[in-house]
Design a binder for these strands. Structure first.
Lengths: 136, 136
DNA sequence: ACGTGTCATGAGAACCATTCTCAGTTGAAC
DNA sequence: GTTCAACTGAGAATGGTTCTCATGACACGT
């Protein structure tokens, strides 16, 4: 139930760099994209380190993770740390943070009705944003 | 908008076997599990064929696919072909089919509000079923 | 019952995102 | 400075899934 006191987390150039790209983008991005982005900026960071850092950030609730339709993991630093969902553009990754108290309640109740415990829910919305749609 | 008239789909021993195991189980199963199940029955089918068949069935709407938390794809022949969601036991795969008209409406409306098109939603519930919970 | 054309199969290679290994590097505390 | 655990990165390993391509077998017409 704790908030991951976990590892001491030493600050390094690499971690700062990853945190920075995450701070600069508003879209959900894959580890590979972030790795490439870092490389193109000159802040080259090993791919393994990118993965490790993202995982650590995700564990600490610093970034949100979701799975693209092809199974790739996408990461994003969200504005709010509280539980929420996303409306993501499937072509550019642009994201709108959503919350739906009604849906939360519904999910929990459905689980309970059927005698299931430890209910978790995955609720993500995918669509094509206005900008991408115009690009035909 | 069609229902995949698609390929002629020739009936073979392998396809019949895959369809049969799917008909016999009520839980979401991975391609690998189904492959093993077929092997243990004596109806051995190549792994590639299992994947191909499942994909074809999924394209035709015959089976539902969802992704486990680790990214693996899980398949199940659902009772209803209409759009619905699932409450799945994360330890045994036992599944309850769910529908939530409220949630559907909510999803569509949220998308529209933010100017997104072609809205799709992923809504899955995971939990531990009563039987698995008792097994400590 | 037989060809025949075409689609299906399967063993293994290829793919690819992700994780692991491990020797070398580097924060940061003393 | 020294010291040492934590961190890094290149490359190997993993594992689910897809691809390749030579071989096999439906199904239709004869």
């Amino acid at each position: 139930m704790s908030e991951t006191p976990a590892a001491p987390a030493r600050m390094t150039r690499q971690r700062a760099a990853v945190a920075e790209v995450l701070g600069d983008t508003d879209e959900f991005r894959s580890a590979q994209q972030l790795h490439e982005l870092l490389r193109s900026r000159g802040d080259s960071v090993g791919l393994a380190t990118v993965y490790r850092t993202l995982q650590a950030l995700a564990d600490g609730g610093e970034v949100d993770v979701l799975r693209a339709e092809d199974g790739e993991s996408l990461y994003r630093r969200c504005a709010r740390r509280e539980h929420h969902h996303h409306l993501v553009c499937r072509s550019c990754g642009r994201t709108v943070e959503i919350d739906g108290p009604t849906v939360e309640a519904w999910a929990t109740q459905v689980g309970a009705t059927h005698g299931f415990d430890d209910i978790e829910h995955t609720i993500e919305l995918w669509g094509t944003c206005a900008t991408c749609r115009e690009r035909v």
